[in-house]
Simulated assay, not measured.
Amino acid sequence: MKKESVTHLTGEGNYAWLHYSDGRKHITAQTLKHLESVLPEYIRIHKSFLVNPAYIRKVKPFPHTLSGVVILVNGTELPVSRRRWPQVEDRLSRIRKGP
């Protein structure tokens, strides 16, 4: 797996789909929880989604809620859960500020 070209991962039970920037998909027999531990630079935005912050174009909050969507550079919209919204905002603001 060339992790730099993976835009996001989608979990399905004990399997995960890796979505690549060129549109390819690959399934792996690993859970998102495991992949989250080996890909610490990726952000868990939902129980079913792990996203590469390098491919996030925009974060769109929903009015009057603590949730929203991330929009990737290829136009894909992925939901951010209410539970994870504060961590996602925090991680992205730290990434954008830089070291």
Rank of each mutant, 00 (worst) to 15 (best):
K25P: 05
A54C: 10
S48M: 10
I45T: 13
S37D: 08
G68W: 02
S48F: 08
R44N: 01
V69E: 15
S67K: 15
E77P: 02
I45Y: 08
I45S: 03
T76C: 06
E77L: 09
D22W: 12
F62Q: 13
L18N: 07
T65H: 09
V70E: 00
L32G: 01
H34A: 11
L50D: 00
A54G: 08
L18P: 07
R44H: 02
V51S: 02
L66C: 14
L66K: 15
K25I: 10
A29N: 06
L66E: 15
N52S: 10
G23D: 05
H46I: 10
K58E: 14
Q30G: 03
Q30M: 10
V73R: 13
G68K: 04
T28H: 04
T31M: 10
P61C: 00
H19Y: 04
P63K: 13
I43K: 00
V70Q: 00
L32H: 02
V59R: 13
P53S: 09
S37Q: 13
R24D: 04
K58M: 11
Y55R: 04
E41A: 14
L32Y: 01
K33L: 11
F49P: 01
R24P: 04
S67E: 13
Y55S: 01
G75H: 03
H26S: 14
P61W: 00
Y20W: 11
P63T: 13
S37C: 07
T65R: 09
P40S: 09
G23N: 06
Q30K: 15
G23W: 07
L66T: 15
G68V: 05
T28D: 03
Y55T: 02
V59G: 05
R24T: 07
E77V: 10
I56S: 00
H64C: 12
H26W: 11
K25H: 12
Q30L: 12
G23L: 06
R24N: 08
L39F: 05
Y20P: 07
G75C: 01
F62W: 14
V59W: 07
G75E: 02
I45L: 11
A54Y: 13
V73F: 06
I71F: 02
V59E: 07
H46A: 06
D22R: 14
P53E: 10
E36R: 06
I43E: 04
S21E: 08
L72Q: 03
G75S: 03
H26D: 13
V51P: 03
I43S: 02
P63Y: 12
L18R: 10
S21H: 09
N52I: 10
S21N: 12
E36I: 01
S37P: 04
I71H: 03
D22L: 11
V51A: 07
P63V: 11
I27N: 08
